[in-house]
Nucleic acid binder design. Structure first.
Length: 476
RNA sequence: GGCGUGGUAGCCAAGUGGUAAGGCAAGGCUCUGCAAAAGCUUCACUCGUCGGUUCGAUUCCGACCCACGCCUCCA
C-alpha cells in the first residue's frame, strides 16, 4: 500500500508515487539553520519527516532524501562574529550538535546533506539565469531581487492574494515594511543575492554583482535542483515555511528551470505549542533535547511525544504528555516482551527484525499499517497497535511480530532503547549491601527490621522493589 | 483586515450518516507480610452553541461563539 499525505499545493490528500515508476521517490526538506541547538519544535518537523520517509521505505518505495544545512544567514554571521569564530567553525559546531541530537532521536541520516556555503556557485548561476530572463533585477547596493510581478502563479501554494500583496505596505504589527531600504521595486520582491554590508565582516563571496552573499530562499532551489533534478517528488518543511520560503522557491525554480513547480507534493507540518503557549525564548518555554534529558526524560520518550499527534494538527507539548509517553512506551514494552516470550524470542531477536522489508497484509497489525499510510495518521496507528496487542483472542504469530517490527521501523521507535528502569547493577555497593540485608530480614520474617532498612535505603535515594524471588533497586 | 486550522471524557487523541478507537490519569477486585509491580476490571446516553436537511447527525448545510496559526527571511 502506498502512503498518502495532504498536498498543500492541491489541498487534497494524495497517494505518493514516484514520478517514474521503479525510481526512487525524491524528497527535499528544508534543514536547520545552525546557529544554536535545535529546539523540540524543529525536531517535531524533522521527526515527522523522518516518519514519512520511513513509511515510504516500509511500503517498498526507495527514497532519496535530501536535507540541507543552512550555514550562512544573518543569525549565523552575527553570532559567529560575536564569538570571534569563523563562520565555518561556528556553524560546524552546531551542525555536529544537530547530528548528535538527530541520532539520539533515532532519525535516519539523509541521503545527501548539502551545505549552503558549499553551493554558492550553483546559487549564483541560478540568480544569473533569473536576471537574464528578466525575473530578477540588481539594485545599486549590489543586491539582486526577484520580481514577483514577473511570475503569474506567485502565491498559489499559500493561497495568497497577490493583488493585495502588491499594495501591502504595512505588516500585521502596523509597522511600515521598510521597502525603500534596498531600493526594491515592490515591497514583496525578495532578495536572491544580498550585497555586502560592513556587518558581514569576512563573510562574503564574489559575484557578478560584486561581493555579497546568497539570500535565504535561493539555496534550497539550487541544491534541490543539483541533487534531485529540476523536478522532484516531494518538498517538506514546517508550516511557517509555506509562505514566503516555499512560495519563493517555486517562483525561483519555475522561472529559472522552466518547470511548473519543482515538487509535485508539498508537505507541511503544524507547529508545536508548549503548555498551550507559543514557544519562544522570551516566555522561557523553549526546550532543546538536552533540556529534556536533563529533566530525566529519554530521547525515545521525546520522539514518541513529538510524533504521537497528527502532523497537520498543532501539537501542545506538555510535561504531562511526556509522562504519558513514558507510560505508553513502557506498556508497549511489556506487551511485546510477553509476546516474544510466548514465541521463545528475545529482545535482541526483535531488534534484528526491525527492517523496512516487511509484510503487513494478513497480520493483526494490518489496520495499524493502513492507518499510517492514510495521511500518516500516527495517533490512529498507535491506537490500532495497542488494540491489536490487547486482543487476547488472537495469539500473535512470528509474522505478526515481524509486522510490528516493521511498524517500529516506520515510526522510528526503538522500543527497547530505554532500559526498563535502572536495575540493581547500577546501585552503589553500599545500597546493594543494605538491600541484601533487608532481603535476609524479610526471609527471616523480621518485617519490622526489613521495613526499617527499606526506609533507610529510601533516605539514601533508592527504592526497593520486591520481585518473585529477589529484589530490584531503583533510583527514586 | 486577508487566508487557514481546530473545538470529542480529568488530560492527550482517532473516528463514522445509524447511536463514540486508543494512550495517560483515576476507581474497584485479585495477588503476594506491607509497599511497589503484575493480572483482571470500571470509566463520554455524548462529540463548542443554535438552527436546518434526514427515518436518524458528533459526522452534511447555515449562522454564531471560542482558541490557535500564517500574512517577508521563525520548523
Amino acid at each position: 500500500m502506498n502512503p498518502s499525505i495532504f498536498n498543500t499545493l492541491t489541498r487534497k490528500k494524495e497517494t505518493l508515487r514516484p514520478e517514474q515508476a521503479n525510481e526512487a521517490f525524491k524528497i527535499y526538506c528544508c534543514g536547520p539553520t545552525v546557529y544554536g541547538p535545535a529546539h523540540i519544535g524543529n525536531f517535531r518537523t524533522f521527526c515527522v519527516q523522518d516518519v514519512l520517509r520511513r513509511t515510504l521505505e516500509a511500503s517498498g518505495v526507495k527514497v532519496t532524501y535530501v536535507r540541507n544545512i543552512t550555514d550562512v544567514d544573518d543569525k549565523t554571521i552575527r553570532e559567529s562574529m560575536k564569538l570571534g569564530m569563523t563562520l565555518k567553525d561556528f556553524t560546524r559546531k552546531w551542525e555536529d550538535k544537530f547530528h548528535k541530537d538527530c541520532d539520539a532521536l533515532n532519525m535516519l541520516t539523509p541521503s545527501v546533506e548539502p551545505r549552503a556555503t558549499e553551493h554558492i556557485a550553483e546559487q549564483i548561476a541560478m540568480v544569473e539565469q533569473l536576471v537574464k530572463s528578466h525575473h530578477a533585477y540588481p539594485t545599486a547596493d549590489g543586491s539582486v531581487y526577484f520580481k514577483i510581478s514577473s511570475y503569474a502563479d506567485y502565491g498559489k501554494l499559500s493561497g495568497l492574494d497577490t493583488s493585495a500583496l502588491k499594495t501591502q505596505n504595512v505588516n500585521s504589527a502596523g509597522d511600515l515594511n521598510s521597502a525603500d531600504e534596498y531600493e526594491r521595486e515592490n515591497v514583496s520582491d525578495f532578495a536572491l543575492w544580498k550585497g555586502y554590508k560592513p556587518s558581514d565582516g569576512e563573510n562574503f563571496w564574489e559575484s557578478p554583482w560584486g561581493k555579497g552573499r546568497p539570500g535565504w530562499h535561493i539555496e534550497c532551489s539550487a541544491m534541490a535542483a543539483k541533487y534531485l533534478g529540476e523536478s522532484f517528488d516531494l518538498h517538506g518543511g514546517g508550516i511557517d515555511l509555506c509562505f514566503p520560503h516555499h512560495e519563493n522557491e517555486i517562483a525561483q525554480s519555475a522561472c529559472s528551470l522552466n518547470v511548473k513547480s519543482p515538487a509535485r507534493y508539498w508537505f507541511h507540518s503544524a507547529h508545536l505549542m508548549v503548555e498551550g503557549q507559543k514557544m519562544s525564548k522570551s516566555l522561557g518555554n523553549l526546550y532543546t533535547l538536552d533540556d529534556l534529558i536533563a529533566k530525566g526524560y529519554t530521547p525515545m520518550q521525546v520522539r514518541f511525544t513529538l510524533i504521537a499527534g497528527h502532523y497537520k494538527q498543532q501539537l501542545n507539548f506538555t510535561f504531562k504528555g511526556l509522562e504519558d509517553a513514558k507510560s505508553a512506551i513502557f506498556k508497549l514494552q511489556k506487551s511485546l516482551l510477553q509476546i516474544l516470550e510466548n514465541l521463545k524470542l528475545t529482545k535482541e531477536d526483535f531488534s534484528e527484525m526491525i527492517s523496512k522489508d516487511v509484510k503487513f497484509d494478513g497480520t493483526v497489525f494490518e489496520s495499524a499499517w493502513n492507518a499510517l499510510c492514510d495521511d500518516l495518521n500516527v495517533p490512529k496507528t498507535l491506537g490500532e497497535i495497542f488494540t491489536a496487542l490487547a486482543d487476547k483472542s488472537a495469539p500473535k504469530t512470528l509474522e505478526d511480530v515481524k509486522a510490528l517490527a516493521g511498524l517500529m521501523y516506520a515510526l522510528g521507535l526503538d522500543i527497547f532503547a530505554d532500559k526498563q528502569e535502572a536495575s540493581s547493577e547500577s546501585a552503589p555497593e553500599e545500597i546493594r549491601a543494605l538491600a541484601q540485608s533487608r532481603w535476609q530480614a524479610k526471609k527471616d520474617k523480621n518485617f519490622k527490621l526489613a521495613d526499617e532498612i527499606r526506609a533507610q535505603i529510601g533516605a539514601l535515594g533508592w527504592t526497593v522493589l520486591d520481585t518473585k524471588d529477589g529484589f530490584d533497586l531503583k533510583k527514586s
